[in-house]
């Protein structure tokens, strides 16, 4: 990770090995995913309570009582747990970047794979963004804005916060040089 900033890559090396993202990124992904899945768990609990009451009051629905207490919400929670363990890990493994002297390559996507190269001379401006979860884990998202309609902004999440700022300075120096 330390040598990522050095202009070591040869100019045509766009298939080279990728630099991995910060390990905390997996955990940031998990937290984000958990926040999105909590409503599902709550919904499962509510449905379960409603069904249990219906089974008690209405003899026609007594068959519902055969489902063990907590069966539905338990199944949903198990599924959520499995998703939380495996999906962020796969996503993390699929992502990476490659910074060379004059370009940044960003690779992402488990099912829909995308491999983008932005020449640094085409960068219009740069953002480093940290949400609350990202700040807790000490990571940041680097965003490169280009003038193209497709890929108007290329996001590179999951960088260590210091590294993201260092990369921003690096790219900024490049932009300055180009526009002279």
């Amino acid at each position: 990770m330390d040598n990522a900033l050095a202009p070591h890559a040869t100019l045509l090396d766009d298939e080279g090995a990728l630099t991995r993202l910060h390990p905390n990124y997996t955990w940031a992904l998990r937290v984000g995913m958990l926040l999105r899945l909590v409503p599902l768990v709550i919904a499962a609990l509510v449905v379960e309570v409603v069904l249990a009451e219906a089974a008690q009051s209405d003899p026609d629905l007594a068959a519902l009582a055969l489902v063990p207490q907590g069966g539905l919400s338990g199944a949903v929670m198990l599924a959520v747990l499995l998703l939380l363990i495996f999906v962020p890990q796969r996503r993390y493994n699929a992502r990476g970047y490659q910074m060379s002297a004059d370009r940044l390559r960003v690779v992402r996507g488990v099912l829909w794979h995308s491999d983008t190269v932005v020449p640094l001379s085409r960068v219009q401006h740069i953002d480093v963004h940290q949400g609350p979860v990202e700040r807790f884990f000490g990571i940041a998202t680097l965003t490169l804005h280009t003038a193209g309609t497709h890929n108007a902004s290329v996001h590179l999440p999951g960088l260590g916060a210091d590294l993201a700022r260092a990369m921003r300075e690096d790219i900024r120096a490049h932009i300055k040089r180009e526009s002279l």
């Binding site: 491999d115 280009t146 193209g148 497709h150």
Partner: peptide
């Protein structure tokens, strides 16, 4: 051009082809 992206959906990955998206100011080109 402002950026170059190689994109592949699940089927494209399986079958070994890809879409090349070119970052064009003011338009799409793929």
């Amino acid at each position: 051009l402002h950026s170059v992206e190689i994109a592949q959906g699940p089927l494209a990955r399986l079958r070994g082809y890809a879409t090349l998206h070119l970052g064009l100011g003011g338009g799409e080109m793929a």
